[in-house]
Simulated scan of single mutants.
Amino acid sequence: MTTTTPTPSPAVRERSPGTAADPGAAARRRRAVSQWLFIAPAIAYMLVFFSYPLVRNVVMSFQQYTPATYFTGEAPFTGLDNWRAVLTDELFAASLWHTLVFTAGSLAGQFVIGMALALFFSRRFPLSGVMRSLLLLPWLIPMVVAGTVWRRVLDQETGVLNEALQGLNLTSGAIPWLSSPDFALLSVILVNIWIGIPFNMVILYGGLQEIPREIREAAVLDGAGFFRRFFGVTLPMLKPVVTVVLVLGFMSTVKILDLILALTNGGPANATETLGTHTYQLSFLQLDFGQGAVVGNVLILVSMVFAVIYLRANREGMAR
Rank of each mutant, 00 (worst) to 15 (best):
F92W: 08
Q35V: 03
N270M: 07
L208N: 14
D81L: 03
L221N: 13
N297Y: 00
F250R: 03
F227Q: 13
I203D: 02
F289T: 06
S187D: 05
R216D: 05
I175G: 12
M304R: 07
M304F: 15
P236S: 13
E273R: 11
V254P: 06
S133K: 06
L301W: 04
M143V: 14
A269F: 10
L282W: 02
F50R: 06
L170K: 13
A224Y: 08
T253A: 08
E210G: 11
T103M: 04
S16E: 15
A146H: 10
P138Y: 01
F289K: 06
I189V: 15
A218N: 07
S61C: 09
L282I: 07
E217G: 09
N200M: 09
R228Q: 14
A11R: 14
D81F: 03
L165T: 08
G73D: 06
A118H: 03
L186A: 15
V295N: 01
N265A: 12
N162V: 08
R229K: 06
A11P: 06
R13V: 12
T88G: 14
F62D: 12
V58Y: 10
P236C: 10
F102E: 00
E214F: 05
A219H: 12
F111L: 08
V12A: 14
I43E: 04
E163W: 11
S252G: 06
L257A: 05
I193L: 01
I113K: 00
T148P: 06
V244K: 14
H278A: 04
A20G: 10
D222M: 07
Y45S: 01
Y205H: 08
F227T: 13
S128E: 15
P236D: 13
F250G: 04
S122K: 13
A11C: 04
T264H: 11
T264V: 10
Q209G: 11
A27Q: 11
A44I: 05
L186F: 14
G18W: 11
W36P: 00
L235F: 07
V86A: 02
I256W: 05
G79R: 01
A118V: 03
L259N: 03
T274I: 03
I189S: 01
G296F: 14
I39S: 09
S9L: 12
S180N: 12
E74V: 12
A184G: 04
T279C: 10
L96Y: 01
T171D: 15
P41M: 02
A21H: 03
F111Y: 12
R228W: 07
R315I: 01
P53E: 11
V233I: 09
E217Y: 10
L107S: 04
D89S: 02
P10R: 15
L257G: 05
T272C: 05
M201P: 00
Q166I: 09
Y45F: 14
P8T: 08
Y65V: 00
N314S: 05
R320H: 12
P67T: 05
A104P: 03
A25F: 03
L170S: 11
